[in-house]
Computed example of a mutant assay.
Amino acid sequence: MSGATPVLGLSAQRIGAMILRYWYLLISSWPRLLELVYWPVLQVITWGFLQLYIVQNAGFFAQAGGILIGAVILWDILFRGQLGFSISFLEEMWARNMGNLMMSPLKPIEFLIALMLMSLIRLAIGVVPMLVLATYAFDFNLFSMGLPLVAFFCNLIFTGWSLGIFVSGLVLRNGLGAESIVWSVMFGLMPLACVYYPVSVLPQWLQWIAWMLPPTYVFEGMRALLIEHVFRPELMIAAASINLALFAGSFAAFIWLLNSARRNGSLLQAGE
């Protein structure tokens, strides 16, 4: 039985087997599970108390309650989406198993789909405690945003996946010596994504760059929703359009880097 589905000849069995592999790796190590919960909770506590202080001492933020915690949670969705994808990929690199996978019937697109689905699982484990803490400790319910939250989430998770796919391809081609880019790429985008401040704060020449990034539209949309109580669909449409191009480009880059790694023997020599 090949387990192939009619859509693009993909195999649900192979994708499910990869997800099961990463799930067993995750639950077999309590430090892995702790790490998923520890950092999101720490961020909510840190920024939550900061917001309480600001609310008590500034009228503007008192009217826009939750803007900092909202930004922290949405940022964590973006960050964990990329990191959850990349960590599962790095598990194969650390185990020197990538060559075996690429010689198996597993298709690259099936591999990527499994990584994307696994990133959602890892994201849920980390974000759910974060949401509970934000709701009961700091009186901020993310779901009070309503349906716009779906648009925010989808745009952020696709940006995270696109970056995860691209940096995974770089590591695949250049070996674990390029591993640091997995941890640093998102923080490099953070100032330009305008997570905690509006785009208007940036110099004019940086604003053009900021508007090329899908997360910028999401965080601007969040601020419009929380401060002005207005949902701006044009921002989400623009973010989705950029995400579509970014996702297609990252997938094409991954395939190119994978083929380059095969030609150069990098799959079997994935060290430093």
Score class of each variant (00 low, 15 high):
residue 266 S to T: 12
residue 217 Y to W: 11
residue 204 Q to H: 14
residue 202 L to R: 03
residue 224 A to I: 04
residue 249 G to T: 08
residue 236 M to P: 13
residue 262 R to D: 02
residue 266 S to W: 01
residue 226 L to F: 06
residue 221 G to Y: 00
residue 245 A to I: 14
residue 203 P to H: 01
residue 210 A to I: 08
residue 238 A to E: 14
residue 265 G to N: 05
residue 206 L to E: 02
residue 236 M to T: 06
residue 204 Q to Y: 12
residue 262 R to P: 11
residue 255 I to A: 07
residue 231 F to S: 14
residue 223 R to P: 07
residue 231 F to N: 10
residue 228 E to W: 07
residue 256 W to V: 14
residue 220 E to K: 02
residue 268 L to Y: 14
residue 212 M to I: 14
residue 203 P to K: 00
residue 263 R to L: 14
residue 247 F to L: 15
residue 207 Q to P: 12
residue 217 Y to G: 08
residue 221 G to C: 04
residue 262 R to S: 07
residue 207 Q to V: 10
residue 266 S to H: 09
residue 242 I to E: 00
residue 220 E to P: 06
residue 205 W to Y: 15
residue 238 A to N: 12
residue 209 I to A: 12
residue 200 S to M: 09
residue 203 P to T: 06
residue 227 I to F: 08
residue 242 I to A: 02
residue 242 I to F: 00
residue 265 G to I: 04
residue 250 S to N: 05
residue 243 N to C: 07
residue 228 E to R: 08
residue 218 V to D: 02
residue 255 I to R: 09
residue 265 G to W: 01
residue 264 N to M: 08
residue 228 E to Q: 09
residue 227 I to P: 08
residue 206 L to H: 04
residue 244 L to Y: 01
residue 232 R to E: 14
residue 265 G to R: 04
residue 220 E to M: 10
residue 214 P to V: 05
residue 250 S to E: 02
residue 209 I to R: 01
residue 243 N to I: 07
residue 231 F to V: 14
residue 265 G to M: 05
residue 259 N to I: 07
residue 255 I to W: 02
residue 226 L to M: 13
residue 203 P to D: 05
residue 258 L to R: 10
residue 215 P to H: 00
